[in-house]
């Protein structure tokens, strides 16, 4: 596959009176993790099903590597997907689940054992998948997605049910998959899950894209160059900074946010005013804040639908 991309363009789909997709358009680039964020019901899973050729859109196109999924002949070698971790036959063992998938693509048994090891299920490979915890099933689903060593990956809520160790593991995995040049699309309804993982963020609501932005730029924009000051005398510091023309807000018993001057200038101002300073640092916006910044102007996006 020459171009490991997912190109979604103008997808529309109705389920009876409900509009599921309303002109969904975005592109997933290789070499980065693209977060696919939005509240439940925003159309994330439907989009993924359309991309995988499972659902038919009323209008629009979805291409993987430049082709519709339905034209692929050994699709798992090109696109790996995790849609629903619970989609396993409960009495079939993890290994056999991967084995039939491997056979369907002409992939050998050795690869099954490789991916089982990669997701940390080697020890329980012969146990029935029905006895697995949600976290183990997520790992099994990820193993299935990795089976064909595909350049494109679609993972629907893969962090769901993982324990903290698993969350750290999957972040590392996603980052390394992207570092290998793969296109990785990860959906989540929780912005925090994508913190420190996603390079690109596609925010959706009501079946369409609200924002599509680079995370680094996004965080910088959300921080707006603010500086955080920790001091024993926040009120004094605030007065001192206001006098210099900066905007300063006391945010805690010993902290204040400063907008306007750079960190060096803040230090200089406070030192000159003899205000005791414990710490001065660049403001780190959270992804939630970035998200709120992004969606603030989205008219369609109303309260009550806001992602947590």
């Amino acid at each position: 596959m020459d171009n490991a991309t997912i190109e979604v363009s103008g997808l529309r789909k109705r389920f009876g009176p409900t509009v599921a997709l309303d002109g969904m358009s975005f592109t997933v680039q290789p070499g980065r993790v693209t977060g696919f964020v939005g509240p439940n019901g925003a159309g994330k899973s439907t989009t993924m099903r359309v991309v995988l050729g499972l659902d038919t859109a009323d209008a629009g196109t979805a291409l993987v590597g430049g082709r519709p999924y339905r034209q692929l002949r050994t699709p798992l070698r090109q696109v790996g997907a995790l849609l629903d971790a619970n989609a396993v036959q409960p009495s079939r063992s993890a290994r056999n689940h991967l084995l039939w998938l491997a056979h369907s693509q002409g992939i050998g048994r050795a690869r099954v054992d490789t991916v089982l090891g990669q997701v940390g299920l080697a020890a329980v490979a012969r146990r029935r998948a029905g006895g697995f915890s949600l976290g183990m099933r997520q790992r099994l689903g990820i193993a299935a997605a990795l089976l064909g060593d595909p350049p494109i990956l679609l993972l629907d809520e893969p962090v769901n049910g993982l324990d903290p160790e698993g969350v750290i593991w999957i972040r590392g995995l996603l980052r390394s998959l992207a570092a290998e040049g793969r296109a990785v699309l990860v959906s989540s309804h929780l912005m925090s899950e994508l913190q420190d993982t996603a390079d690109q963020l596609v925010v959706v609501g009501r079946g369409r894209v609200i924002a599509d932005a680079n995370v680094t730029e996004l965080l910088a924009a959300a921080a707006r160059g603010r500086v955080v000051v920790r001091t024993r005398a926040p009120e004094t510091a605030r007065t001192e900074l206001l006098r210099a023309g900066a905007t300063a807000t006391v945010t805690g018993p010993d902290t204040l946010d400063v907008a306007g001057p750079s960190a060096e200038r803040v230090v200089a101002l406070l030192t000159a005013g003899r205000v005791p300073v414990a710490e001065v640092s660049a403001y780190q916006a959270s992804l939630e804040e970035a998200y709120l910044t992004l969606t603030r102007d989205a008219v369609e996006f109303q309260a009550g639908q806001v992602a947590r």
Binding site: Y69, P75, A87, V88
Partner: peptide, 18 residues
């Protein structure tokens, strides 16, 4: 029917879109 109950049918249909 077990594939429909568990949702495995989607996995099956992604292995070959035909």
């Amino acid at each position: 029917a077990a594939e429909y109950r568990t949702g495995l049918v989607r996995t099956t249909l992604t292995t070959d879109p035909r």
